[in-house]
């Protein structure tokens, strides 16, 4: 068997091992490659930055165990960003697991807050917790929060939460930040909150879902989108708070380079073999 035949019949486990090394190496020995900020991420950041102090905004926390490493760092930085501007935050989640991870994001963000920034639970932020029912749940929550939730995630009755005293429907919010992860739920926000109530929205989704939602940006229904770990890294960069996402984005670059190399190599070998009458 020639070297070319061996390469074309390469055991995929060797590729897995090479990919593991390519992804692990930048984590063990951090390398920072040059990075451009995507317009969608810049738009998301600038939109958050333009919200007036004292406003109340709604945040859907849809990151789970698998997607938190990608979106979590970005969500944490956005929480810091908004709280630093004295913007009040109301969180909710449409998943059971994601409601718990939203608490992690809030805790991590509070730990990063500069001293002197007010961040009292119930006053500056509140986590309304899990809202079941998917899109129907979002619609009910948007129309009448008290019909869906009687207490927040930590069991405090809604009547005892100062931040919620004048808030009961989607039109009470100045903006919506939909951190959907891989829930595929961004259209829920557009259909049930943006379209009927006219609340401006930015989104976050995993990298693979970005092409699905860019049409909503082109149509003006969504202002920007933070795509995967790169979007989070860009938010960190724009905030001047480099963190976990930036390191992960570099590891993605290394994996991407190896993957592109393998795709090119595989195609070249395939066409050479076909010319020689080998491959079919």
């Amino acid at each position: 068997m020639s070297l070319m035949d061996k390469m074309l019949a390469l055991d995929q486990r060797i590729i897995f091992a090479l990919m593991f090394i390519a992804l692990a190496f930048p984590i063990l020995s951090p390398v920072i490659l040059p990075m451009n900020i995507q317009q969608y991420s810049r738009d998301s950041f600038e939109f958050a930055d333009s919200i007036p102090s004292g406003s109340v905004v709604l945040i859907e926390g849809g990151l789970g165990a698998a997607t938190y490493p990608q979106g979590g760092p970005g969500l944490e930085v956005q929480i810091v960003h908004l709280l630093s501007k004295d913007i009040k935050l109301v969180f909710f989640s449409i998943g059971t697991e994601t409601a718990a991870w939203t608490v992690t994001a809030i805790d991590n963000a509070l730990a990063k807050l500069p001293s002197g920034v007010a961040a009292e639970n119930g006053v500056n932020w509140v986590h309304m917790g899990y809202v079941p029912g998917g899109e129907s749940g979002v619609a009910a929550f948007a129309n009448d929060i008290r019909s869906v939730k009687t207490e927040d995630h930590f069991g405090t009755p809604i009547g005892q939460i100062p931040l919620m005293s004048d808030i009961n429907k989607a039109s009470d919010f100045a903006a919506l930040f939909w951190w959907g992860g891989s829930e595929g739920s961004i259209p829920f926000g557009i259909r049930q909150i943006v379209t009927p109530f006219g609340v401006p929205m930015t989104g976050m989704c995993t990298t693979n879902e970005v092409p699905n939602y860019t049409p909503y940006i082109n149509s003006g229904q969504m202002i920007g989108i933070i795509g995967g770990v790169r979007g989070s890294a860009e938010y960190e960069y724009l905030m001047g708070m480099p963190g976990l996402a930036l390191g992960q984005a570099m590891a993605t670059n290394f994996g991407g380079l190896l993957w592109a190399l393998l795709v090119v190599l595989g195609n070249v070998l395939y066409f050479v073999a076909r010319r020689e009458g080998g491959a079919k």
Binding site: A24, T67, Y68, P69, T207, V229, Q248
Partner: peptide, 23 residues
């Protein structure tokens, strides 16, 4: 092609997310 590339990148990110904690 764009969707495929983005999907591959997403899979990398899933692995990297775990590796960050494991390493």
């Amino acid at each position: 092609g764009v969707t495929y590339g983005q999907t591959v990148s997403f899979r990398f990110e899933l692995v990297i997310g775990r590796l960050v904690d494991m390493l």
